[in-house]
Computed example of a mutant assay.
Amino acid sequence: MNKYIFDSHVHSNNSFDALDSVIELCEMAIKNNIDGFCITDHLEVHEYSEEYEKSITKSHKDTREAAILFKDKLKLRTGIEMAQPLQDIKTAEIILEKFPCDFIIGSMHSVKNEKDFYFMEKCDFEHRVDELLTKYYEEYYEMVKWGKFDVIGHITYPLRYIEGNFKMKIDMTKYNEVIYEMLKLAVNNNVGIEVNVSGFRQQYGKQFPNFEHIKAYRDFGGEIVTIGSDSHNRYSIGENFKDGKELLLEAGFKCYCEFENRKAKMINLLK
């Protein structure tokens, strides 16, 4: 298996929930023989404010400066994790113009008019889980139809909390019809998917999305797939990368991708 590691989902301390500076992330990545990564700091579109504008501006500045500093040792790319763009499309369009970068993850952390799944308690799910997940995937489908991003981030994100934290087993077959239509649309719109391996470090214990969704995207003709640790500190950059590669090989992929200037660059999984 190719030992080349390019981690496409990393947060610096320019994200509200992350700990380490870009310089600290780079130093640890070099120490751990990671070939490159993309800083994809949070931008929750429906909550966009001056603070987010400052944080992404600084994130990109820090990343570009570090890319020069470590140019002979590490590939470093600018990115954004742009969440809930459909909840304020006008602002999302402004953000795309304002922050040109190498890579954009399109993700969803919350359903419209609901709090982030991260902040929900078990009681929030007990009587509404089907309603919340139905709305979640319907909005995700519409987001992919809009499609002005590079990959769909952590498609099964709510399971981190519902199944991982609260041990509530979910029958995902209820949502597979809309998820599969979303994946077909992604293929047609040249949008990729992310294999987010952060779940291996959490109570959930596996990747996002489920293997059946990774396999379905490939079966529908999809080839654009990134691997992301979703690291929020320097110690987890590149962690469980081998698990991600093995999942892709099992699903029938021959390559995974890194992005530069919003263009996918294929990395052979074997060579």
Rank of each mutant, 00 (worst) to 15 (best):
M1V: 08
I5A: 02
V10T: 06
H11S: 07
H11N: 05
S12I: 01
N13K: 10
N13C: 03
D17I: 07
A18K: 00
I23P: 06
I23T: 10
I23W: 05
M28I: 07
D35A: 10
D41Q: 03
D41Y: 05
H46A: 13
S49T: 10
K54D: 11
K54L: 03
S55Q: 10
I56A: 03
S59D: 04
S59F: 02
E65C: 05
D72L: 13
D72E: 15
K73F: 07
K73C: 07
L74R: 04
R77C: 08
T78N: 00
M82W: 02
M82D: 01
P85A: 03
L86F: 01
Q87H: 12
E97Q: 11
F99G: 07
I104A: 01
I105H: 00
G106Y: 02
M108F: 01
M108W: 00
S110C: 15
E114I: 10
D116R: 06
F117Q: 09
F119V: 00
F119W: 10
D124S: 10
V129Y: 15
V129T: 12
E131W: 09
Y136G: 00
E142H: 04
V151C: 11
I155K: 06
Y157L: 08
P158Y: 09
P158Q: 12
L159C: 01
L159Y: 02
I162K: 00
E163N: 12
M172A: 00
T173H: 12
K174F: 06
E177R: 13
E181Q: 15
L183I: 13
V187G: 10
N188F: 01
N188E: 15
N188M: 13
V191A: 14
V191H: 15
G192F: 05
V197A: 14
V197F: 14
K206T: 12
Q207F: 08
F208N: 14
F208R: 08
E212Q: 14
E212H: 09
I214K: 01
A216V: 05
Y217E: 06
F220T: 05
F220M: 11
G228A: 05
G228L: 03
H232N: 00
K263T: 07
A264C: 11
M266C: 06
I267Y: 08
L269D: 07
